[in-house]
Design a protein around this nucleic acid. Sequence first.
DNA 1: GAGGCTAATGTCAGCCACTGACAGTTGACA
DNA 2: TGTCAACTGTCAGTGGCTGACATTAGCCTC
Lengths: 231, 231
Amino acid sequence: MATPMPHAAPTGLRERKKQRTRDALIRAALELFTEQGYEATTIDEIAEAVDVSQRTYFRYFANKEDVAFAVQTMVEARFLDELLARPATEAPLTALRSAVMVAWDDIGSAIESVIPVELHMRSYRMIESTPALVAAHLRRSSELEEEIARLIARREGLDVDTDPRPRVLVAAFSGVMRVAGKVWGEGQDCTVASIRELTRSYLDHIGPAMDDDWRTGRERPAATSATPYSL
Amino acid sequence: MATPMPHAAPTGLRERKKQRTRDALIRAALELFTEQGYEATTIDEIAEAVDVSQRTYFRYFANKEDVAFAVQTMVEARFLDELLARPATEAPLTALRSAVMVAWDDIGSAIESVIPVELHMRSYRMIESTPALVAAHLRRSSELEEEIARLIARREGLDVDTDPRPRVLVAAFSGVMRVAGKVWGEGQDCTVASIRELTRSYLDHIGPAMDDDWRTGRERPAATSATPYSL
DNA sequence: GAGGCTAATGTCAGCCACTGACAGTTGACA
DNA sequence: TGTCAACTGTCAGTGGCTGACATTAGCCTC
């Protein structure tokens, strides 16, 4: 059911209604979660706030956790799309980095169409301080890492189970992304631009060392304008 | 018959009964989980198998997940005890390594007093293939890592929030432990001795590079008999 | 070794997350 | 406009989990 894609404007009235209901559920849920806590909020409350039945909530989200990660899911999907679209000439780390940057460029408006970025930021902090959500977050992250690693391996024509480099690279990349997210969550500036720049500057620190060509063993010609690495 | 807690034999009849009930619950739960699956098993079934009320189950375990990790918890507690007991002269990685080895030396019998090691091994695989338990496992692991990192930092007189080395070392150590556990779970040899040796050989590969003295900046004199590192 | 203290347990009632079944409603499209 | 399919509400039920209260059973003292 309900495709969560906020881009690709919905065609008919029915689709638009669904999108509205879904967005309203996310917004109501996050507002309630951040105000009174995740555990203290019941799904009945969320449904009531949007004026739908509890059963309808479960037709949009598989469980109580899901709604808390709806925006994250959106961002991740956007990132994966961009990663798939990167030219094969780019080195792995460059592709990851470019995909993140391009994704951030237009995900901001997509987020804003659902919830204020400030609410997203508060949700981020709420997740970090709720054990049940921390667990879910870790599991989701490890699943995403695995997906990215396989994707990178395929790009480079490698076997993810014998060559450790894809997983290692993705682990490093994810680690940096996680730290950037955490620093953003703790900071004051709750704009999308700020997390984008934070991400950029953190990624710059992975350095070009990992970024040579895995297929020929030689360094790649710079695919993007200027090599973006400082160290 | 029941040698209850890993250490500290119970004094009275009451304590022994409690220990028996607890062990029986763990055993029944793991047997049911591994036979018919985690989700498909209800707590009523577990309680019935041990002939206690469901309410009593919840007086021993906080939730359904907890019982699945009871043995792990035992092993971890044993490890932390040993780590605390390591002399301050040992370098961090050496202390971690020694604590693991000493812990494995006598944890085997403690495990066997609760469940057959073979059941523990099946449980391990069951956890890995159950999303809800994977999430719980990841959260538990990250909490344990944090605890170990703080412990190591205190040992070395460092601030865990400014000096990245404790967390980095523990991350590497935990990663190796996780892989060792995974390989053991996939293998045939379900003895405690086998995971002990697996752990030893994997830890040997971290190498002495990380193992110099963090306080003086010089290499430590070998605290143990022979330097155990092969690479 | 009877009786009081207290920890452990059972029973019961109830909340909440989640699901299947079925019926009513409402866009979509001929 | 009428038919179809999708969306939604209602209802009943299961299972995880908790608080309250009564009951049982080790423990300890006299």
